[in-house]
């Protein structure tokens, strides 16, 4: 397979950040109360991810190793500020409903994780496609979870009433905070089953690396962090 397509496939399916790697759980829980919020968050993260991968990969030989992390953070934070202003200008209602979670894209572990594990070691073009694949994978994940929660919680899809309120009583808890935890819990459980099935088939899925595993191995900041918890179980790293 073409190596660029391979990066896209990797991000969308093989190492999907939401379903397989379980990265970026804070935004996943917080913004998926509706599909449109999930889509908006996913796309803005994608834009930041593509451009941060581009810049970091382009400057990878210039940035000294010792100040790598602060440099990455400045790049990501600048891009997030740009995206925030664009959203405030062109999609003000989406910007209002995502609120503080847009600037918090800075601390999304997907972005620093990809910068650290891929963009800082690979040429520009593959890095762009890596960012695009990961970003779109994240977008698909957030939108699907958003669709699910919106359908159960309000009977709507992208704001259109599909389940008529004449016979359907919305399970409002799904669009509220507890619903986010419940949906994620079920997702983790389902993925545990899928993982086991794939293991039995001899085609193991990539191990989850985010905070969902409760250790620091997959965190994008783990290179500079001195307070690492020793992992209870070894996590495969690239």
């Amino acid at each position: 397979m073409n190596k660029y397509l391979e990066r896209l496939y990797n991000g969308l399916i093989k190492e999907n950040p939401t379903f397989v790697l379980m990265l970026g759980m804070c935004p996943t829980l917080a913004v998926t109360s509706s599909a449109i919020n999930g889509l908006g968050m996913g796309l803005s993260t994608t834009v930041v991810l593509v451009f941060s991968n581009l810049l970091i990969s382009a400057f990878r030989k210039v940035i000294p190793d010792g100040v790598r992390m602060p440099a990455f953070i400045v790049v990501v934070a600048s891009l997030v500020t740009v995206v925030q202003f664009i959203m405030q200008a062109y999609t003000p209602s989406l910007s209002d409903s995502l609120g503080v979670y847009i600037p918090l894209i800075v601390v999304n572990c997907i972005i620093l994780g990809r910068a650290e594990s891929y963009a800082s070691k690979n040429p520009v073009l593959p890095s762009i496609f890596d960012g695009l694949g990961m970003g779109l994978g994240f977008t698909v994940g957030l939108t699907l979870i958003g669709l699910f929660r919106e359908l159960l919680g309000a009977g709507q899809i992208f704001g259109f009433q599909v389940l008529s309120l004449s016979w359907f009583t919305p399970i409002t808890i799904f669009v509220m905070a507890p619903g986010a935890f419940l949906v994620l819990a079920c997702l983790v459980a389902v993925m545990n089953i899928v993982r086991k099935k794939m293991d039995a088939k001899g085609k193991p899925l990539a191990a989850p690396t985010g905070c969902i595993t409760g250790d620091c191995a997959g965190c994008g900041m783990s290179a500079t962090c001195t307070g690492k918890r020793t992992a209870d179980h070894t996590v495969k790293t690239e």
Partner: peptide, 22 residues
């Protein structure tokens, strides 16, 4: 139940705590 062991049951607990805090 096996699939819920580990993080999943923690998230279910968080869900119940979240309902309580509501």
């Amino acid at each position: 139940p096996k699939p819920f062991q580990g993080t999943a049951i923690v998230l279910v607990t968080a869900c119940l705590m979240s309902i309580a805090f509501m």
